[in-house]
Design a protein around this nucleic acid. Structure first.
Lengths: 148, 148
DNA sequence: TAAATTTCATTTGCATACAAACGAAATTCT
DNA sequence: AGAATTTCGTTTGTATGCAAATGAAATTTA
């Protein structure tokens, strides 16, 4: 195998993976995910944590709206809510005002998890940003915010 | 449902999702992924494209090494290679020097795909970075590089 | 009001992403 | 050389992430 027009390892000299924003976004996300898993309490994943935090703020949200608040589409937030449901961190029920909606609310157990996770949550961001100086950390956050 | 310690939507005032780097990395990645899918040729995904580009540069790499070059673990790169294999963009074979290794090489068809995708690939980065001024684009790239 | 459109939630299918466990092969250590 | 360790690839299981299709319910339009 592995033969063909083997000669010159021609790479479109003008296109390098290392110059693409997507490649670095992926690498940075990977590093963050690893740091997150290392520090977060209750084995909560980044998306589960995001959903819990938003529910702690808003008390009760429709499932899709919760997804919008946490940047997850309908299919994704459903899976996340299902897993939080299984662990007793949230509960769901019909919206009396809108037959289409599924209301999601945080439970006492979920609130405790948020209390436990807030500290580690801050550490995770700090640790992720550690390679940068404070001013650079601010700059990165600002640039990323404006990118989305 | 949706009752409990309902009262105050207490959110750990000190912890806001919007201040966390992980949240914005996820949002930025999502936007990039959408732009990528919109512009890339041959329905190649970001990881498939990354693997093809690296193979166009190196001609032939062991599967795990290809994964390292493109920031994918062994399980992930295997799936990517399998899909590229199915589409005829790469071919594989044993490494005569190392019985453990699986060599992966790009095919002529794969090379054509890389030629077709290089232009769009550049556009994808440009479009993703469009909300930022040129100097800011450079700064973001630099900061992300140093983060990983 | 009736019809067209939109929203909400669900389901299926495909593609990353990674942990963990496994066997085979190579390398290092003693 | 023989044993311990490491590397390589594979497989399984879990968790995003999103497109597309579906049905039910609400809203908008005509």
């Amino acid at each position: 195998m592995a033969r063909g027009a083997a000669q010159r390892p021609i790479a479109p000299a003008d296109y390098r993976l290392e110059d693409q924003i997507g490649f670095h976004l992926r690498r940075a996300s990977q590093r963050h995910t690893a740091i997150f898993a290392e520090h977060m309490t209750d084995d909560l994943t980044p998306t589960q944590w995001a959903a819990l935090v938003k529910l702690a703020e808003h008390e009760s949200l429709s499932q899709n709206l919760l997804g919008r608040e946490t940047a997850m589409d309908a299919a994704t937030i459903k899976g996340v809510v299902d897993r939080l449901l299984r662990r007793g961190f949230v509960e769901t029920g019909p919206d009396p005002h809108d037959g289409r909606r599924m209301l999601v609310a945080i439970t006492g157990s979920g609130r405790q998890a948020v209390r436990r996770g807030a500290g580690p949550g801050g550490q995770i961001t700090a640790e992720t940003l550690k390679p940068l100086k404070p001013a650079e950390q601010k700059a990165l956050l600002d640039l990323l915010r404006r990118l989305a």
